[in-house]
């Protein structure tokens, strides 16, 4: 479903160009569990943003379900983002003035779903991440692990097929991190395609497919049968 062909992206950091992606080829099937690892500046976040349609390639193609996305107008890319892709960020990015429930409803509100429908859907996914009792709270009343679970609820409320997580445990303590990973892997087990970008080797090695990036290139791409069932020890 995800197919990158010879994708390149260069950023200008001040005067000096930074080649974040160099002719990257990547094919991912529905329901895969992929981790992307690599040092800082190796291009792993750029890869994630590219797949998440937040960024456009300078050259090369990105096919989602067999159709080209790189030349789609911004409106359609935004709609695809809303419907097909869920994002999870290291720093949660919840809107502080909104309640938990309203934060989860946000993508549906933007998509123009009616109040009653999205309330039901939001409560459902909040129950799924174990936070149904917290729907009226504001983000500043929740712990880090809870915040990330709200963020996950928000990412899956539109029932996307791809879940992109950028260092999802980066701001969490061990116990919360473990919880979050369990939630994400459960979602993957139910069929969602999960792509996790991380520094954390322990987390990265849990994925069935592990990609290492160096200098904007995919260095290794290993499909392992490890991971599932092994105990996660954040490091």
């Amino acid at each position: 479903m995800i197919e990158l062909q010879q994708v390149s992206k260069t950023y200008l950091i001040g005067e000096t160009p930074l080649r974040a992606l160099r002719e990257v080829d990547l094919v991912a099937q529905e329901g895969e569990y992929i981790s992307v690892m690599g040092p800082s500046g190796s291009g792993k976040s750029t890869l994630l943003n590219m797949i998440g349609l937040l960024d456009r390639p300078d050259s090369g193609s990105y096919l989602l379900d067999g159709s080209h996305t790189e030349r789609l107008p911004e409106e359609q890319r935004a709609r695809l983002r809303g419907e097909q892709i869920g994002f999870i960020f290291q720093s949660f990015h919840l809107v502080n003035r909104l309640t938990t429930l309203e934060n989860v409803e946000l993508p549906m509100m933007l998509a123009g779903v009616s109040v009653r429908e999205r309330r039901t859907a939001a409560q459902e996914v909040l129950a799924q991440v174990g936070l149904e009792a917290w729907s009226g709270h504001h983000p500043n009343q929740l712990s880090g692990g809870q915040l990330q679970r709200v963020a996950i609820a928000r990412a899956i409320v539109m029932k996307p097929r791809i879940l992109l997580a950028d260092e999802p445990t980066g701001n969490l303590d061990q116990a919360s991190g473990r919880e979050i990973i369990a939630v994400l892997e459960n979602l993957n087990a139910e069929g969602i395609t999960l792509l996790v970008v991380t520094h954390d080797l322990n987390l990265g090695q849990r994925a069935r497919r592990q990609i290492h990036m160096v200098d904007g290139r995919i260095e290794t791409d290993i499909s392992a049968e490890a991971g599932a069932g092994a105990k996660y020890v954040p490091g």
């Binding site: 935004a78 709609r79 809107v95 946000l106």
Partner: peptide
């Protein structure tokens, strides 16, 4: 800024 980025990531178009 961050909120705007988030809105875009979860499906808001520039027009929205």
């Amino acid at each position: 800024r961050r909120e705007i980025g988030l809105l875009k990531a979860i499906g808001a178009s520039s027009a929205q």
